[in-house]
């Protein structure tokens, strides 16, 4: 009897240890703030991340099975839609905004340019149901996934149940997106004292800290707030940003401060993609700011930069490119699942 009890205890310990080993969080550098997403209550699981990755790349999420999340969030472009000011979705329909670059989402409190979405786990509902993006419904996605040959077993591995639900579908996509951490650019290795900035980059970093870092705060290169950065209103789009969600007059023309990480690859810039190049962005901040009631207090006076300073600042911004993020095989199209 003693033996069997001992065996039972041993099996329990092994089971628990196995379970614990699969309950994981994301890894990020020392000194970074604590993520907003509570991994202690909602740990990541390898099988769930893998399922989420398959769903992220699978056009099954759209009405006519043509548009996936990756259509507008391609890994090689810092998970945004390169080359298009306004992202296009199903049947080439054009939206009103430039798809945001996806990275370091575990630190975000609110999602989308106007903060319409309050939790990463429900984020995918927005493009899925948008008539110019995927034009689908979560109800129908669940039906399609249940009928597929690959998904029921992936859901069983992830959630212990091959009956597919909206909750599990969205949770899996959320878990994959949470793993998209970019923290290994040249900037990061300089901060770790493993490499050095060139003189030009060093000067650019100094200029960045003087002129940009109040909103694009290190190490995330965003303070996650909503700001009016002085862009004139596009009278065709009439997009006033955050006010649509918050209904607060002082949120008019405010959009989420985007991260500058991987900015080399996330062009075009601004919420409506109106600026194609980094030099156009710097020109906006030095001579294009339009004053209004809600203009960010830090932009009340134009930023003054000489031509050489602009070059140095750009050189610094390029040190935020993280090739190990852009070409991370764990973030790429899951050929082994979707095209076995």
């Amino acid at each position: 009897m003693k033996q069997s009890i001992a065996l039972l205890v041993l099996v329990s310990i092994i089971t628990l240890a196995f379970k614990a080993s699969d309950n994981k969080s994301i890894t990020f550098p020392k000194g970074w703030p604590k993520p907003n997403y509570d991994f202690s209550k909602k740990p990541l699981k390898s099988a769930t991340i893998e399922l989420g990755r398959a769903l992220f790349y699978d056009p099954i999420l759209s009405r006519n099975n043509t548009i996936s999340c990756a259509s507008c969030h391609s890994p090689y472009n810092a998970f945004t839609h390169v080359d298009h000011a306004l992202s296009h979705g199903i049947e080439d329909k054009i939206g009103t905004r430039n798809s945001p670059a996806l990275m370091n989402l575990a630190w975000n409190k609110l999602f989308m340019w106007d903060g319409a979405v309050n939790n990463i786990e429900v984020q995918a509902l927005a493009p899925m149901h948008n008539s110019v993006e995927m034009d689908e419904t979560i109800e129908h996605v669940v039906t399609k996934l249940q009928a597929s040959t690959i998904y029921p077993s992936l859901f069983r591995k992830a959630f212990g149940d091959s009956i597919i639900t909206g909750e599990h579908t969205l949770k899996a996509i959320g878990q994959f997106m949470l793993t998209l951490v970019s923290a290994n650019a040249k900037y990061d290795s300089v901060m770790r004292h493993q490499s050095k900035f060139t003189m030009q980059e060093e000067n650019g970093y100094r200029l960045f800290k003087t002129h940009c870092s109040s909103c694009h705060t290190e190490p995330l290169f965003t303070n996650l707030s909503f700001e009016n950065n002085g862009l004139p209103v596009d009278t065709n789009l009439n997009d006033y940003g955050r006010i649509r969600i918050s209904h607060q007059a002082n949120d008019s023309l405010k959009f989420k401060v985007p991260t500058l990480r991987n900015i080399e690859f996330s062009y075009p810039y601004m919420h409506d993609g109106r600026l194609k190049t980094l030099s156009a962005v710097l020109k906006h901040y030095t001579s294009g700011i339009q004053n209004s009631n809600t203009l960010s207090p830090t932009l009340q006076h134009p930023i003054v930069l000489t031509a050489n300073e602009k070059i140095d600042l750009t050189a610094f911004l390029l040190t935020l490119s993280d090739k190990s993020f852009l070409f991370n095989p764990h973030f790429a199209y899951p050929k082994h699942i979707l095209l076995p």
Binding site: V117, N130, T165, E167, L170, G174, I245
Partner: peptide
């Protein structure tokens, strides 16, 4: 509960009682 992420059962977004263009 409106900010707690995705939930199941009667609170599953497939029940047609969750907004999609904004959370809630």
């Amino acid at each position: 509960t409106n900010s707690a992420g995705v939930l199941g059962g009667d609170l599953d977004p497939t029940k047609g009682m969750y907004w999609t263009w904004q959370s809630g």
